[in-house]
Amino acid sequence: MTELVATTPGLFPLPDWAKEELSDLKGHQKGDLIGGDEGADIVAAYDRARGEAVDDQHDAGLDRVVEGQLRWDDMLAHPLAVHEGVETRGIVRYYDNNNFYRDPQIRGELDFSGDVAAELDSTAELTDDPLQAVLPGPYSLSDLATDDFYGTDEDLLAGVSEFLAGEVEAFPDHETLFLLEPSLVESPPGDGLDERVPEAISEVAAATDADVVVHTYWGALDEKVYAHLMDAEVEALGFDVVAGDRDDTVYNVTEYGTTSDVALGLVDGQNTRVESPETVHERVEWFTEQVPSQTFDTVYLTSNTELFYLPVSKYREKLETLAAATAQEVEA
């Protein structure tokens, strides 16, 4: 019997009160908000918002609780944007999602930061629910950076993976770790670098005893990228079954196999239409039926993308949908 686990890739929308309050507070604090340098009022506002995010997940009945990443103004690039060795420069658009962020330019070695670990420590104090950590995957983080230190794409990827592994080692106890890798779909690595990606991901995964999920989204992976990704030493791969051509994803899975656990992006993280639990469960069954030779121990039910793009009311409804969809069982 397959276990269904309701969770999310994090990066939640800020409550309206927090947007207004933080906009005002940050307008009075000059300079970049490097990790740990925020004023006391800003810290307090984020603490309150974090508490609401934890309560939202608990009230919805999710099986894993994330921190919410409400401080991540630069989204997936946040671990770089708050690093002392990185200069955050002008506004850029990372992906075709109509959102714009600052460009992180790496100026020095990516040594230990501890910024995300501190967020998770604060979250662990708020809940007894199983904790899930969220990080950008090493390829996506290196893809979003402007490198002015490491020199080559291979050295940059190695430096980023070493940095992320060091950050993970400082995390409090957590059940799962989601590594978000949309760049594997949107900006796939070329020949040579694609062979380095599973090694980089495995290095980060080895830094934790938790189950590691590499979650990809905004479409299907290129066949060659997927074949290499299967070499990564992780418990689960994540697939977007909302956006792009699902048949390409099914082809990859049937041709090259997959992990015994999978994460499925089943609700649309960028569309305000709220799916029903029945629709979500039907999508789980559709996927498992496409690969009848594969037995899944665990299926993580999640949104295909971050939920940052949604109004707060809709994001909360989608949390409830994911949790309710686990009430039924799936034979696999």
Rank of each mutant, 00 (worst) to 15 (best):
F149V: 06
F149C: 06
Y150R: 11
Y150P: 00
G151E: 08
T152P: 00
T152G: 00
E154C: 00
D155Y: 10
D155W: 11
L156E: 01
L157C: 03
A158V: 04
G159R: 05
V160D: 02
S161L: 02
E162G: 14
L164Y: 05
L164Q: 06
G166D: 14
G166C: 11
E167C: 02
E167A: 04
V168W: 03
V168A: 08
E169M: 08
F171Q: 03
P172G: 05
D173C: 00
H174K: 01
E175Q: 14
E175C: 00
E175N: 08
T176P: 00
L179N: 13
E181F: 11
P182L: 13
S183Q: 10
S183F: 12
S183E: 12
S183G: 08
E186F: 09
E186I: 14
S187H: 15
P188G: 14
P188R: 13
P189E: 13
P189S: 12
G190Q: 11
D191K: 13
G192D: 10
L193P: 09
D194R: 15
D194Y: 12
E195R: 15
E195H: 13
E195L: 07
R196G: 00
V197I: 10
P198A: 04
P198M: 05
E199S: 14
A200F: 12
S202G: 15
S202P: 08
S202I: 02
S202E: 01
S202W: 00
S202D: 01
E203D: 14
V204E: 05
V204Q: 09
V204R: 08
A207D: 03
A207G: 04
A207E: 04
D209M: 00
D209H: 05
A210C: 04
A210P: 01
D211P: 00
V212G: 01
V213L: 10
V213H: 05
V213A: 01
H215M: 10
H215P: 06
Y217N: 01
Y217I: 05
Y217Q: 01
G219P: 04
G219H: 03
G219W: 03
G219C: 08
G219S: 05
A220I: 07
A220E: 10
A220W: 02
A220Y: 03
L221F: 02
D222T: 08
E223Q: 11
K224S: 15
V225M: 10
V225Y: 07
Y226R: 11
Y226F: 15
Y226W: 09
A227E: 15
